[in-house]
Nucleic acid binder design. Structure first.
Lengths: 199, 199
DNA sequence: ATAAGATTTGAACGGTCGTTCTAATTGTAT
DNA sequence: ATACAATTAGAACGACCGTTCAAATCTTAT
């Protein structure tokens, strides 16, 4: 509104942005609250004014990031007609927008016995979001006869793990160079989904 | 030989065994030298008598584990005749003997800017071992006409990432329950490798 | 028996980190 | 102008961790 020297909400957002960046780059344990303080320009005390503790901050960021990813997909999904097209589109959406490094930090937190069980559960629950998105595409393909009928849960997991595995490559390679690999995976997977002439 | 109260080699082995277990369970950063000391029953100082530091100890364990895995595979490989059989066998070998949790700890170490570049490089070099094993099978299959010719590097990466992705499931599910999933992945992959009637 | 070397311990140090607390500063309503 | 609440800073703490070191204990060769 008016020019106020204090804008707590802006500070909060800035802290969160820098925290995401740091957690992604350095992992959960190696990112200290001091690091976030230095990067964002706000004091450590101020971070605790906005967030209960480091763990809760991270879980919030992970949830928000995953929701963002899913919302972006729902927005983009309608530009594709067939389920097969959606699979290729999803592969690119995963490649370019899935925040692999951040979610790997989540595994760090989850594997720490000192982490609160609630946080761990909340992080594990995040995995159902992409799986649900994959499953929806497969279901749609089966419903409209584009894909043969099969064990949809099994297919969902197979597709999810493959895309997840491919995502690990984003640590060491350029995204652009990985496009053909992601597409190739979808192509191979589609050959199974569209399998005809067998029974 | 004779009953000696001190057996340094035995102590070293015991320390390493407990360290592997702890690194696998809790990750690299969350496993302290004190933890290893308590679990193994030897003092912290004694650990430093055998190993230069925590980082070097971990790299050694990771290398040894990976070598073990590969050696076990080479031993087992000869019981399979066709390349396709080897792929199924490899999938089971990965499921039951690939030490996923330990290698994830390696990512923790590698993503820490304070880790020595040598250690990071040594850990990254470990990834070539399974990839080489996958590639050898694919090459053999193509050589003997079992698989169609194709981009072997691409196929190797696709197979490796898929198995790697599936391995993540070992954190939350029973190994036995994952067998069919691993087999299904190989089946789908084989359909591409054996593709006939297309061109 | 003794000396020299190998093995093992446990205390101690320096550093880092998550968190808390108090005080200072700023905004807003009176 | 004053009071009160919101915001921010920074010092301080208690805990933990990787590492070092000097001393104690044990083995082996003489």
């Amino acid at each position: 509104m008016n020019k106020r020297r204090y804008d707590s909400e802006k500070a909060k957002v800035e802290i969160m942005e820098h925290a995401v960046s740091l957690f992604s780059q350095k992992g959960y344990n190696q990112t200290s609250v001091g690091d976030i303080s230095t990067a964002s320009g706000y004091s450590k005390g101020h971070i605790y004014y906005h967030f209960e503790n480091k763990e809760k901050l991270f879980v919030l960021l992970a949830q928000q990031t995953m929701q963002d990813w899913h919302n972006k997909w729902l927005q983009k999904e309608c530009i594709y007609f067939t389920a097969a097209e959606k699979l290729y589109g999803m592969a690119m959406h995963v490649l370019y927008h899935y925040q692999t490094p951040l979610l790997r930090s989540g595994q760090e937190l989850a594997s720490n016995p000192k982490s609160s069980p609630e946080s761990v559960e909340q992080l594990y629950n995040l995995a159902v979001i992409p799986m649900g998105a994959y499953r929806a595409i497969l279901q749609e393909g089966m419903d409209r006869g584009e894909f043969v009928n099969g064990n949809i849960d099994e297919w969902t997991v197979l597709l999810g793990t493959w895309l997840g595995g491919l995502c690990q490559l984003t640590n060491t390679q350029e995204l652009k160079a990985l496009e053909s690999l992601f597409n190739q995976a979808v192509t191979i997977f589609l050959r199974e989904l569209k399998k005809v002439g067998y029974k």
